[in-house]
């Protein structure tokens, strides 16, 4: 009995130590950043926080995501009217997906089988079967669809249209819009909480972030942002992320050059972190100990330590960094 207890303690200690090492030391992860103006992909090493290389890809690359097995990168090459499939190790383009015109953002379902693409100029969402590399359907939505997200429980796909000012709720089984929620002016990004109970949506021109209840599809909270010394006209929320345990949420506030830290339980702003100029999009590290931000005007990314809520470094990457994805 005592022996097994000791073993238990030992195991726990080892786990604790390795965890501590993992969390305190810089993680050996790779950060991929699309460079809208350079037609390239920047590759940053998480451990050294250095730009490792820049790889030429399609024209005007914006949205980016990794497959759930981290073996492939998908990049929306907007001016090539395609989603490029890039091998995440060799960084060579190995194929394209028929995304429809001017793809900007897209979302993968949790299994990595389907992709939902916003076609901004055509007011459509294109649904792609990734294995078949084939478009299954184009779903008409509001004017200028942008933010798109799939709920972790696979029940919903939402598309936010910037000029219509709506969130469109798409049933992934029928691929039809079944409900619409009118939100604040110029919705940009949307993300579900990991329990699929809430949808967080940023509104760029209204300067707000709204939390929607997924069951009722109603707005349950509208957050506003006030930063001392920053004019209200600079409050233009874009990227939004919520951590797995719904403890903290983060909103990139564009030209305010800040990331808002939100208490995801109380739905209140807790702090503002100063990052680079015109912060657009956000990505967690796989262990969610860090947050990476793309800063479109200062041409860099900021690295935020989420345990301390401190910006620890910025890394110059190239012109107009837009999207970011992180591979362990």
């Amino acid at each position: 009995m005592t022996g097994s207890l000791d073993m238990n303690i030992l195991t726990k200690t080892v786990i604790f130590l390795s965890l501590a090492l993992l969390l305190n030391g810089a993680p050996a992860e790779t950060i991929f950043v699309t460079l809208e103006k350079d037609n390239a992909l920047a590759v940053v090493d998480g451990e050294s926080a250095q730009l490792v290389k820049t790889v030429a890809i399609g024209r005007r690359p914006r949205g980016i995501a990794l497959s759930p097995d981290y073996r492939r990168l998908y990049v929306a090459a907007s001016d090539d009217d395609a989603i490029q499939i890039i091998d995440a190790d060799s960084l060579t383009v190995i194929g394209t997906l028929p995304s429809g015109e001017d793809p900007e953002t897209f979302a993968l379902d949790p299994d990595g089988e389907r992709m939902y693409v916003s076609n901004e100029d055509d007011n459509l969402v294109t649904v792609i079967d990734i294995a078949e590399q084939k478009a299954l359907k184009q779903i008409p939505v509001g004017v200028e669809p942008e933010g798109i997200a799939v709920s972790p429980d696979r029940k919903w796909v939402v598309s936010a249209s910037e000029t219509t000012n709506m969130v469109h709720w798409i049933d992934p089984k029928t691929l039809e819009v079944v409900a619409n929620t009118l939100v604040d002016t110029r919705p940009r990004a949307a993300t579900f909480t990991s329990d699929s109970k809430q949808l967080w949506v940023t509104a760029e021109i209204a300067g707000t972030m709204q939390v929607l209840d997924v069951d009722s599809k109603q707005i349950i909270k509208t957050l506003t942002f006030k930063i001392a010394g920053v004019g209200q006209e600079k409050i233009q929320p874009v990227g939004v992320k919520v951590d797995r345990v719904r403890r903290w949420g983060y909103v990139a506030i564009g030209p305010a050059n800040r990331v808002a830290v939100i208490d995801a339980q109380k739905l209140e702003v807790e702090a503002y972190l100063l990052v680079g100029h015109r912060v657009w999009n956000l990505a967690f590290s796989p262990d969610q100990s860090r947050l990476y931000t793309t800063n479109g005007v200062s041409n860099d990314i900021s690295i935020i330590d989420l345990k301390r809520h401190k910006v620890i470094k910025s890394v110059a990457v190239g012109r107009y960094p837009w999207g970011v994805a992180v591979k362990p």
Binding site: P140, G142, V143, S161, T164, V177
Partner: peptide, 10 residues
Amino acid sequence: EDNNTTGRFT
């Protein structure tokens, strides 16, 4: 045209 795109939902 934009208004009618929105109008489909309203």
